[in-house]
């Protein structure tokens, strides 16, 4: 994979439209994700962000075309797609009290032959994901005994263990304390820096502006901006799209929107 040009899009979505129950949720969305790039997807509640992500993963049907590494996603089997595209859903729900390391190992499912034990490659990928996310200390503990922040990191490790070139994360920092939010964002950025294409749905515009290389802004099912953070999250656009007056604050050299007050309706 190292011979692939760094800037060739690894995921292409062209004129993507999604309707749920006869209602258009996402309309005519076109964008591409590149290797080595961290992209934030922002927008008000109900803008269609999660729906868009679910369609990219193949969980719901969509019109238009999604290409992964140049191949139409619709022509791929579920396992083929899962090897190329890892998905970190909202909420980090675990249904059984498995050990954290066992949860991380689930990330190897798309690579595994269900009737043979894990290969060396599987074990190494799991160990790398555990080391990257720093969850060694509780790797053998049941996930149901972990705190929200620990669970979020286990869930991230599980997604990383697939070692897919694309990572789609739905609100990876939701319900985390500030320290855990920053740690998860740093890990997502590192994943991009190692050559992955990361797309994360975000509600915290300040985190999005600080960590993303590019920001997609959605409103009412449409893509209204696809640009570097400073351009995509200008005070004017934040006002238009989110109905919030923002001021720009400089953090570590980046211009970051800080929310002041809701605009009168």
């Amino acid at each position: 994979m190292s011979d692939t040009p760094a800037k060739r899009p690894v995921l292409d979505a062209a004129s993507l439209s999604i309707a749920l129950g006869g209602r258009a949720i996402v309309s005519d969305v076109t964008f591409a994700l590149e290797r080595g790039s961290m992209t934030a997807l922002v927008g008000p509640n109900g803008a269609g962000k999660t729906t868009l992500l679910r369609a990219l993963v193949g969980l719901i049907a969509s019109q238009g075309e999604v290409r992964i590494e140049g191949c139409p996603a619709k022509a791929m089997s579920g396992r083929e797609r899962a090897r190329l595209l890892a998905y970190l859903p909202q909420g980090h729900a675990f249904n059984w009290p498995l050990a954290a390391a066992e949860i991380v190992a689930l990330g190897r499912h798309p690579h595994a032959d269900p009737f043979s034990p894990p290969t060396d490659a599987d074990r190494q990928a799991v160990a790398r994901a555990i080391a990257t996310t720093g969850i060694e200390d509780f790797a053998e503990r049941s996930v149901l005994t972990l705190s929200g922040g620990e669970r979020a990191r286990v869930a991230l490790a599980r997604a990383l263990a697939t070692e897919a070139p694309i990572l789609l994360a739905d609100e990876p920092t939701a319900s985390l304390d500030p320290r855990n939010q920053l740690m998860v964002m740093e890990q997502l950025r590192e994943t991009a820096q190692r050559g992955g294409a990361v797309l994360a749905v975000m509600h915290d515009l300040a985190l999005a502006a600080r960590f993303a290389d590019r920001v997609l802004v959605m409103a009412q099912g449409r893509l209204v901006a696809d640009a570097p953070p400073q351009e995509a999250l200008s005070t004017a656009r934040v006002g238009d799209v989110f109905g919030v007056d923002a001021i720009m604050v400089e953090v570590d050299g980046a211009q970051v929107p800080f929310m002041r007050a809701p605009r009168p309706a």
Partner: peptide
């Protein structure tokens, strides 16, 4: 193996190719 993947819920399992 599908049951094991379902530990992550149906969306999680489906995203792993189940």
């Amino acid at each position: 193996s599908a049951f094991r993947a379902l530990t992550l819920g149906e969306d999680g399992a489906a995203s792993l190719g189940v």
